[in-house]
Design a binder for these strands. Structure first.
Lengths: 198, 198
DNA sequence: CACAAGTTTCAATAATTATTGAAACTTGTG
DNA sequence: CACAAGTTTCAATAATTATTGAAACTTGTG
C-alpha cells in the first residue's frame, strides 16, 4: 500500500497510461483509485499553493476530503510523507480554519481527524478565514488614509483621494457580497443564487 | 523628495504622529500626502503578498494608481528603490494583467506607464487573470478524475467520487459567478448587484 | 508518581521565490 | 552603420517561507 502513495510528491506520468497490471480490456479504468486519489491530492496541493496556503495544508485537506473514515496524525505522515511536526501544525491550522474536526475514539489516546465534507460549508470556512486575513485587514488600513484632508485643486491630492475612495467603495461591496455568500443557506445558494446568475 | 519614499520599504511609525514640521494647529493634517501615499503603497504591497502576487508588483501598481500622471521605469526604480530588472519585469506583468498601459511620448524613447484607474475594470482584470491561473487550471485536472468508474459499494470509491463531483459542482457555480462579475457593466454592478445584495 | 503513548514547539535547515545587476539586446537618429 | 538611450534577460544571490526532527511537553493509567 505505502508504495502507491509516493506519487503524491512526484506526480507519475503513468497516470495517463492504462494500468499496466490489468489486461487492457476496454472495461478496466485507465487509473486505479489510488492513482486517482494521488493525482487529486497533487492537484489540490498545487491549487492551494496558488492561493496563499502551503502545499502541505492543501494536501492534508485533500487527503481527508477523499477518505471515507478519520485518519490519525500517523496516517497523514505516512501517506503524505511529511514529518510529525509538519503534520501536527498543519492539522492545527485546518482545525482553526474549521475545515476538519477531531474525532476521539473511546479508549484511545490517539487523535483522528475527519474533513468537513459539505462543500458549501468548506467554502464558507475559506471565505471567512481569507476575508479576515485580507479584506478586513486592508479596510482598517484604508479607513485612516481615505479621509486625509487636502487641497482639491492639487492633482496629486485628487488622484490619491479618488483612488482611495474608489478602493474603499469596492472593498465595501466585496465585503457585503462575501457576507452574503457566507450566510447562504444551501437552498438559497442553489435556488436564488444559481438561478439569478446563470 | 527622494528621502520621503524610504518609508515604502520600512514603514515609519511616525505615520500616526502629528507631522513634526507643522505648528500642530487643529487644521493641519496628521499625515502629509507623501506619507499617506507611502503608507498606502505599503498596505497594498502587504495585501498583494497575501494574495499570490509579489510585493513589488502590488507596490508598483499602488504607486501608479495614486499618481496623477504617467511614470517611467526610472521613476519607479527611484521611488520604490527597486532594480532596473525588477522594474522591467514587474511592468511587463502588469501590462499582461491589463492593469497598466504604456504611454508613449512623441520624440522620447523612454516609456511611461499609467494605471487603469477604473476600479471595476481593475477588478475584472484581476478576476480574469486569477480565474485562468487557478480555477480553469483546476477544472481541467478534475474533469478527468471525476468520472473515474468504480464500484459504488466500495466506501473508498464513494468518498472519492462524492468529493470530486461536489467540488466540480462548486467550481462550476464559481465560474459562472466570476463570469457574471467580469461582464458586469458599471450600471448593472451598482444597481442590480448592490441593491440585491445589501 | 512513574511511565507509556501520544502531541506540540521551535531552532536549524531545506526549498522556494524574489531581486539584483551586468551583459545582451533593441531601436531610432545623425 | 555607429552610437546613444533606452529595455530585457538571466545567472547569481538574497530573502522568505516551509519542513524537519529532536527535545519538551501533556495526559491518562497502573
Amino acid at each position: 500500500m505505502s508504495r502507491q502513495w509516493q506519487t503524491y510528491s512526484v506526480p507519475n506520468p503513468s497516470y495517463f497510461l492504462v494500468n499496466p497490471t490489468d489486461n487492457n480490456t476496454n472495461t478496466t479504468p485507465a487509473l486505479t483509485l489510488a492513482e486517482a486519489k494521488a493525482q487529486f491530492i497533487h492537484t489540490w496541493g498545487v491549487s492551494g499553493a496558488s492561493w496563499g496556503v502551503s502545499k502541505t495544508l492543501a494536501q492534508v485537506h485533500a487527503l481527508l476530503l477523499v477518505s471515507p473514515g478519520a485518519l490519525s496524525t500517523e496516517d497523514l505522515m505516512e501517506q503524505l510523507k511529511i514529518s510529525r511536526g509538519n503534520a501536527s501544525m498543519t492539522v492545527r491550522d485546518l482545525l482553526d480554519w474549521g475545515l476538519i474536526y477531531k474525532e476521539l475514539r473511546p479508549g484511545e489516546r490517539r487523535e483522528y481527524f475527519v474533513a468537513e465534507k459539505d462543500m458549501l460549508q468548506v467554502t464558507r470556512c475559506i471565505i471567512r478565514a481569507r476575508k479576515r486575513r485580507e479584506l478586513d485587514q486592508m479596510k482598517r488600513s484604508l479607513d485612516q488614509l481615505a479621509n486625509l484632508p487636502g487641497d482639491p485643486a492639487d492633482a496629486e491630492y485628487r488622484a490619491f483621494h479618488t483612488a482611495l475612495t474608489d478602493i474603499q467603495q469596492l472593498a465595501n461591496v466585496s465585503e457585503k457580497l462575501l457576507n452574503r455568500l457566507m450566510q447562504a443557506e444551501k437552498s438559497w445558494f442553489w435556488d436564488k443564487f444559481m438561478k439569478l446568475f446563470m
